Structures are given as C-alpha cells and as structure tokens.
Amino acid sequence: MASPLRVGVVGCGNIVEQYLATLPHLADVRFVAAADLDPARAQAVADRVGGRALTVDELIADPEVDLVLNLTIPDAHDRIALAAIAAGKHVHGEKPLAATLERAKPVLEAAAAAGLVASCAPDTVLGTGTQTARAAIEDGLIGIPISATATMMAAGHERWHPNPDFYYQPGGGPLLDMGPYYVSALVTLLGPVVSVIGAASALRSERTIGSGPRAGEIIPVNVDTHVTGVLTHASGALSTIVMSFDTVGTKASNIEIHGTEGSLIVPDPNHFAGDVHLKRLSDPWQDPWETLPVSGGYVDGGRGIALQDFVRTDGSPRTSGELAFHVLDIMETLLRAAHEGRSLAVESTCERPAPVPLTELD
C-alpha cells in the first residue's frame, strides 16, 4: 500500500470537523481534495487543510486520489462507494456501510471484484480504550469471557440537535445510530455473533425539537426508540445490549466484560480513549477495581485513524467492510427478532479484528 495514501473527502458537513482534527497528523495519509454538494463548504475544507475543491464527479475521477473518504449521509453511502470503486478507488466511509444490509452487499462485492478495499467507521475501536480492554482479555486477566453488557441510554437527540428528524425515521433510532460503536466494540472484544433475540418499543409517536431555529416544532417518530437484546457470540459468550432514546440517564457502565477470573469496565466506545478498570476474582472483597495501564491501541487517536491503519496493515484495515457488514447484519437481525418475538440467526460473520499494539502516532 503506497504511502502517503492520497485521500479525497466527499461530504463536508459537521462530521468532517472531527476528521480534520486527525488527518493532518497522520504520517501515512495526505489530504488532496474535497467535494460537497455545496461548493462553498468544499472550498472551506480545502483551504483549511491544503488541497483542491472539486465536484463529486471530479474527485471520484481524479487520478491523484487513492481513497475516497465517504462522509455523506447514510442514504448516499452505497452510491458514492460504488462510484468510487468503479473509478478504481479504495473507500472508507462513515457508519453504516450502507443504509440497509441489502444495499451494503453490492459495495463489498464490487470492491472484491475490483481488488479494492472498502472499509468503514467506527474506528474508535482502534483507540487505547477498547484496545487496552482487548489486551487484558488476550492476556487472560479475566479468564474465559462469559458475558458482556452494553448500555447507551439517553433522552433523545431532539433535545440538542437542531434538525433531528432523521434519527426518528427508518434507518435511524438508537440502535442504528449509536449501536455501531457498541456492537463493533463487542465484536472486537468477543468475536462475531451467531444469533440474537430482543424486544423493542416506541411509546411516543412525536418528539419536540428543543434547540435551534425549529425549537418547539413537533416531529413524528417512526422507529423503535428503546431496543434491548441478547447477542450470542460464536465463542458462546452472551452480550446484553440496551440502546434507548427514552431515558433520562443511567449510571450503568457503557460496556462491561465478565469472565471466569475477573471483570472489566470498558470506556465509552464512542470515544478513542478512557480508563479500563479490572476487578480480579482473586481479590473480591477489597476495593479491587484497579485501573489498567494503557497497553494497546493508537495513542491520541481520532476519527480517521483507520486511514493510518489502512496503510500500516497494507490495505487490510481492522475496520474492514466485512466487520461493518456483520455489525449492520447484527443490528438489522436484532430489530427483526424484536418484532417477530423469537431468536434469529445472524447469517453473516467476520474475522475478529486483530488487536492493535500500543502505537504512538508519528
């Protein structure tokens, strides 16, 4: 894989700010172009980082672009990815891989046929938080992993987001919005999932926008806003997951992993860093939650670190399209299982991503 990897960004909305905080600091990545439906936004990004402002079609066709960083809205993810692959470009996109599993499959098929790579966020799993927990599991600190819990409970994005409509329409909701962070972390820590069972509800048919110029406007709710389920991993471990836009708050840990010899508290998978706490079976009665030293992951990582990983792994990134497809499959199957009231098999699988050794950015 050539270094530096020449990256063109398609989609210069709010999320691009987080990528711009990381990309200039990656030794193996060079920003070369930006494109957006709003030319002014593309020009602003190009001016800040250094590069050219192009139309979407120009960027996808540009021979100076090796990889298209796809930061468009979910409904456009597959269309942009397929166009980039057809033009001979690798693709890394924001989550999800596509708006639906059915639309995601052609992206992986096209990339494989062309000998190209399609990878996908979240790359938070590459940070020191999740990877220190992964190292603890690999080192046997909790024995054999038996179970996990993953909890995201909030009052709803309409309280702070000025245009929250899409969170409450098909393709949105707490599971499909926030679930990729949690499910990707669970698969990274415990391996792929073979079956799911769940329940879901939507007890409010409307929400009120709480901020911005539309404050006070009523919007409809057409998705499940509280989803809970149990994921059965191929290893036999069971993960209980709760994703909700129907709660005021919680003191529950974002993720906990429990094994025969100990338990781990894993930091928020929506972030790259954070303390990992270990409670050992050998010392259960003292104040036994010890903070583990950082022992894995990209130090000071941020959104876009997957592109550095892309180069360092010679085009076999840990945030692979296969992982993203499996995560999307788990979530869609869980929602279907909740409505059908029965356990369902998850048809796809993936390799458990390799651990990230403790790595300082150049």
Rank of each mutant, 00 (worst) to 15 (best):
R159T: 15
R214S: 14
D28M: 06
H326M: 03
V32Y: 10
V187R: 07
A112V: 05
S316G: 03
L335C: 02
D28S: 15
T313K: 04
P267H: 10
P164G: 08
A87P: 08
A252C: 08
I219D: 01
N163L: 11
V194P: 00
D139R: 15
G296S: 05
D36I: 04
P96C: 01
E58C: 11
E256M: 15
L190N: 04
V16C: 12
G274E: 09
W160K: 09
P180E: 09
L71K: 11
A53M: 05
K105Y: 11
S3T: 14
D275S: 15
E64C: 00
P24T: 02
A87N: 09
T232Q: 13
P39E: 04
P145S: 05
V266I: 13
I265D: 01
G93I: 06
G259D: 03
M243T: 03
V194N: 07
V16I: 15
E109C: 04
S235E: 09
A81P: 10
G8H: 06
A306Y: 05
D275P: 02
V45L: 14
H258Q: 12
R336S: 11
G115E: 10
G198M: 02
L82G: 05
V16W: 08
A84D: 05
V248T: 14
V9M: 14
P174E: 04
A150K: 10
S235V: 00
R159W: 13
P96N: 09
Q131N: 06
V32K: 09
V356I: 14
A112P: 11
L116C: 13
H339A: 04
M243Y: 09
I144S: 06
V32H: 11
H90E: 08
A2T: 14
H92M: 01
R312A: 13
L176V: 08
S184I: 05
A112K: 15
T188E: 08
L116V: 12
H226N: 09
A306K: 09
E17A: 14
E102Y: 00
A87C: 04
A338L: 01
T72F: 04
I80Y: 03
L67F: 03
G341E: 09
G51F: 14
T359G: 05
G11K: 10
D268A: 14
P39Q: 07
L334D: 08
Y181C: 00
Q18W: 11
V276P: 06
I144F: 04
P192E: 10
S282Q: 12
S235I: 00
N254L: 09
S201Q: 09
L328P: 07
L37D: 05
P317E: 06
T291L: 05
F245N: 15
A234F: 00
F272K: 00
T333S: 11
P164Q: 06
G229C: 03
T208F: 01
A2L: 07
A237T: 03
A76E: 13
Y182M: 00
T55V: 08
R134L: 13
S320Q: 06
R159D: 12
